[in-house]
Every structure is written in C-alpha cells, then in structure tokens.
Write a protein that binds this DNA or RNA. Structure first.
Lengths: 334, 334
DNA sequence: CTGAAAGCGCTTACAG
DNA sequence: CTGAAAGCGCTTACAG
C-alpha cells in the first residue's frame, strides 16, 4: 500500500467498521477494549493520521487559530505572535499568522481567507483606523491590544501604564517633559497619551508638557526627537516619554547624534519592553506588556466561544533601567 | 436563507446543475455565456464563496504555503516571513507561519501539522542541527537560508558575502581582526566563517585573526565582544566582524560599555541588514540579504513542484555605514 | 456544452 | 456496543 492510509484501511486491518475506528479516534469510552486495541494497533501499524480537512468538512470545526497583526516586522508584534503561538499550542491548536501592513483592505482579505479555512477563531490586532463591516460572523473574533469593531478586547490598561511612566519621571524630579505619542488613529495611541497627560496634570499643574504625535516606529521617534532636542538648551525638555520602545530608541539615536548624554542630560522612557529595549545603550526604562498572558487570555476567550463585547485590561509594570535619571542641576548652564 | 451558501444554492438560483457552477468557478471556457452569466449573477447575489476545505478534500490541493522559521522574534526571520508572505500573495497563496524555537521535535511537529492540512508546500528555515526523518513526502519542501535534509536550498552565497566584509576591513587597513562566528551546527554559520577566514588568508597571510563562535543573538555578541575588548589595548583587535547583525549590535554595546569609540577606536561589521542595523549608533556596516528575492524564489520553486536536490545561491551586497573606518594610527598609545 | 452520479475522508444519528 | 448509511461541499470523469 502506497497511498496515505484512511479510516477505511484502519477498519479493514482491524476487522471493524469505519464507524468504530472513528469512535476510537474520538476517544469514546463505549467501545469494547478488545476492539479498541485492535484499532489502535492498526493505527500505529499503518501510521494512520486523520485527515483534518475531511474532519473539518464534516464537523465544520478546526484546531487552527488565525492571528492577524498590523506588521510582523514590528518587534512588539512578532513577540506577540510568538506568545500567541505558545498559547495556542498549550490548547493543542495551531496558529496561522498573517500581517495586514496596517491596511484595512488587506486585513479584510485575511479575515476572509481565515473564514474560508474555517478557523476555530480569529485573534486580531487591528490595523489603524480599522473600520470593519459589521457582519455577523460564524467564528469568534477577539481583538488583542487594539480593538476591532465591537468584538471583545484583551489589552493592558494603557492609560494606567502610561501613568506609571509619568509618576516615575515626576519622582525623579522632571518638570519639563515631552511626550511622543502614537498615532491618534489607534486606540492604544490615544489611551496612552491621555493616561500620561492626565496623570501629569494630577501630579502638578505647573509641569511643562509638550506633546507630539507620530507613528509607533523608530523613524518617527528619531524625527520628533531630533526636532525636540535641537531647540536651545533652556527650551529643551529634561525627559522624553514615548508611546513605544521603537520611538524611544529613535529618540535615543537623535540624542546621540546631537551629543546629549542619556540619562545625565536627558531621560528617555519607552513602552512595551521589546527585547531590544534591554540592549540599547543605555538600556531603556520602559513599561512591560505581559504578552504571554495577553495572548493566553485571548486564546482562552476564543475557545470559550465568547460573543459578548467584553473588555479585559491587564496591568503592565514599569521596568526601570539606565535611560532615566534625575535631571541635571542648572542644566541650562551647559 | 441563513446558512452559508453552497454550490447547490447557486445552482438552484441560476437554474443549472452544480457541475456547471463548478465549471464556471474553475473558469472553464466551455460554458455557454448565457449560463455563465446566470451563474455569476447567482454567485454575487448570494455572496457565495467556495468552501476551500471541501475543494481541498476533493482535489488534495490547497493554496496555503507553510513557512517554518527557527524563531519569529529574531528580526531577520520576521523580515523573511514578511517577504515570504508578500511572495505567496503574489502567487495568490496564503502563508501559514510557525516557529520551531530551534527545536527539532517542534519542527517535526509543525511539518506534520502542515501535512495534515495538505498545504501546497513547505518552506523551511531549518533549526540548528535539524536532522529529519528522510520520509518521502507528498508535498514539496524547499529549504531557505539553511538547508534541511537534501531538499532544494535557496540562500545567499554565504562565503562570498562574508568575503565582502573581509575585503572591506582589509582595505580600510585593519590587520588585527576578530571574527564572531555563528553556531557551528548551522550551515550558514559555518559557511560564513569559512568564507571570511579563507578570504582573509588570501589577502594577507600575516593578518592576525581571532575567531569565536556563539549563537546568532544579541547576548552572544555582547558576551564575546566584552571578552575581546577587555584585553589590554595592544592585544585588542582593531575590527570585529560578526556573523549576524544581532551579534554585531551586541558587540557594539560591549564597546560602548567599555568606553571604546566606534569606529575611531574599533570597527564593527554585521551581517543580514536587519532594519535595526540602520538605527543603532553608529549605523552598522553590514551585508544585505535580499530577503524579498530569496523568499520569492522559494515560493516559485515550490509551485514548480521541484523535487530535485538543487541549490541556488544569490549574491548579497555590502552596505557600508558608520560603524567601520580606518584603524587608529598608533592606537596602542591610547 | 451540460447534467447525473460517484467519491474525496471523515462523523454521527439510526437501527439493532 | 457496533455496523450500515447518509452527508459535509466540492470536482470530474462519464454519458449524452
């Protein structure tokens, strides 16, 4: 026999019907041990593996979870993807990954492709400005990190987390701070900014706070950072908080190019705690997102067949490293 | 009607048989225009989408390509994944991505999962020391970057590319060079090292060359870099070439920690040209891998149903940036 | 050129 | 407890 073995082959070899083979496969206990053994023997002798397509066709259920991220080359999302894969594996599901390039149409296409493949569910880190057709779908969708339509959302508490950074900089003594915000068309960007701003004003109304918006990437951080730091020393902030590590690392680069010492002349804080945050010079103070827990919860929720419009926010933690410190005394004398 | 529409529904509405619907779907030209129109109308009226599982079951062909990488959080591989997705999309295929965590067993499981899903083919960036069961498979496999078993391989010419770095450092005047190699259990690691070493000895037999092996990651580069640079100034190399950008960036960090100026006191070159290479301080001189072309060729080869043991090596290009320069004169006087 | 029918590999009521 | 049969949604020889 050269073909891939099927239930029929197993049934033949075990001397039972295909129905019985299927029952053994399903782990039904109502099969006589004797038959069960024969079947199991045949299965291993033949090296039989169930055809998942056929099974899916019959049951319209699969064990594949689809994950769509805005950009797989963004280290935060690739870390999220790794976490999601682990989480899926824990539940004996596999992960199908797609990247939307922050394009709503591509995102829509990926969703359709996943539906065609009757995935078990879709975890979606929405593209900016994602504004989906509100179709009632027959598979569960959970949004992760960024909300998609009114599907349930798993994310950190962005505002609270951004507040942690505000507290940290304030306690160090900074009173002239710049905030590099994320895109205003993302919920995460908006919430982090609001959280930061409102915490700052709670702390002290007299803090000087400048806000700039950009994309979440390196280039954006570098550009904004450069513009900020090229101001005359007495106008420059003593600390920069960014809405992403990538922005912060870009700003770090700008500081270096301009010749500013971090953290003695300028403090910089990021957000996300990507792997790289701990490798730049100096190591970046940032907010750690618990990606494993976030992904894990998203998978659980999916498998529970939620259909509500829930929202679960986890807490993030501040990680203090070398890029933040007290402001220089009399720094304008520089 | 509330169910998802099937060929049957389309056939009914169009007043034809399901066979005819299927033929229209397949684009067969031997269908009378009149019928074809009726069918197409019914399709859009119903919002019909073919069930890919059923189709796959019948034809045992899908339009999914499986990609397995050793570690999706490694920026080089995530870039490769993005390239592969683009390449697959160009051929109207989708990509299923899995990460093996450099574990041969996990890799094997992913392969099985893909086979169960009757993917169109598998692109495999093999785990270190991958040593597969030589089963004859019924789907094509192409190895990318790192060879898997004796399946066809698409990669750059590692040795030649490493030679480019050797040339560059030599021309700058470096005569005391350290090489941070990749893992000896990867083909890429070995070939890059051999290419570098042999080019150096071709250039000048009297060059002092130290070689260290590590993993391809940041930490490894930082550790080896630190050890290297903590030697007395007259024993230190004037240039470090690394087998990956991550290693080079780690070494860069070590240099910073120790207080060595790059490139005036030490040149550092990487390999791969990940996005970050252009963002560290100073920007990293490196070798650019044409990931789009590599992935594109891998997809093509897969769809051509190759089964040979071919090997295609593309050329990589040297990208000179700020991290390399001529060695300091009389540097031991420091 | 088109329809009726078989079959891809499973699962699951339905009998017994 | 187990077998025979129907059916998931398609495609494709086979007739006509």
């Amino acid at each position: 026999m050269d073909r891939i073995p099927t239930v029929k082959d197993v049934a033949m070899r075990a001397g039972v019907s295909v129905g019985t083979v299927s029952r053994v496969l399903a782990g039904e206990l109502a099969v006589k041990p004797a038959l069960r053994n024969q079947v199991n023997e045949a299965i291993s002798a033949l090296g039989y593996r169930p055809n998942v397509m056929a099974r899916a066709l019959r049951t319209s259920k699969t064990d594949v979870i689809g994950l769509i991220v805005p950009d797989i080359t963004n280290p935060f999302f690739s870390q999220m993807a790794a976490s999601a894969e682990r989480a899926a594996a824990k539940h004996r599901h596999s992960l199908m990954l797609a990247s939307s390039h922050n394009d709503r149409e591509v995102e829509q296409n990926h969703i359709s492709a996943f539906l065609d493949r009757s995935v078990r569910g879709i975890i979606l880190v929405a593209a900016n400005l994602s504004c989906p057709s509100q179709v009632k779908l027959n598979v569960p969708i959970v949004s992760l990190d960024r909300r998609y339509a009114d599907f349930p959302l798993i994310s950190i508490n962005h505002a609270e987390a951004a507040g942690l950074v505000a507290d940290h900089l304030y306690e160090l003594g900074h009173r002239k701070i710049a905030y590099i915000a994320g895109p205003t068309d993302t919920e995460a960007g908006r919430k982090r900014r609001e959280g930061f701003v409102s915490r700052i004003s709670e702390l002290d109304e007299n803090i000087e706070l400048e806000i700039f918006s950009g994309r979440f990437d390196y280039e954006s951080g570098e550009m904004i950072g450069r513009r900020l730091l090229l101001q005359p020393p007495d106008k420059r902030p003593t600390a920069i908080a960014a809405a992403s590590d990538q922005q912060a690392i870009g700003a770090l680069r700008a500081a270096r190019d301009i010749g500013l010492e971090v953290p003695s002349e300028l403090s910089i804080a990021g957000f996300d705690d990507i792997q790289l945050a701990n490798l730049v010079v100096p190591r970046l103070t940032t907010v750690r997102q618990p990606t494993d827990q976030l992904a894990s919860r998203a998978v659980e929720l999916l498998l529970e067949n939620v259909d509500g419009t829930g929202e679960e926010a986890m807490s993030a933690t501040l990680v203090v490293r070398g890029s933040t410190g007290p402001p220089m005394l009399g720094r304008s004398a520089r």
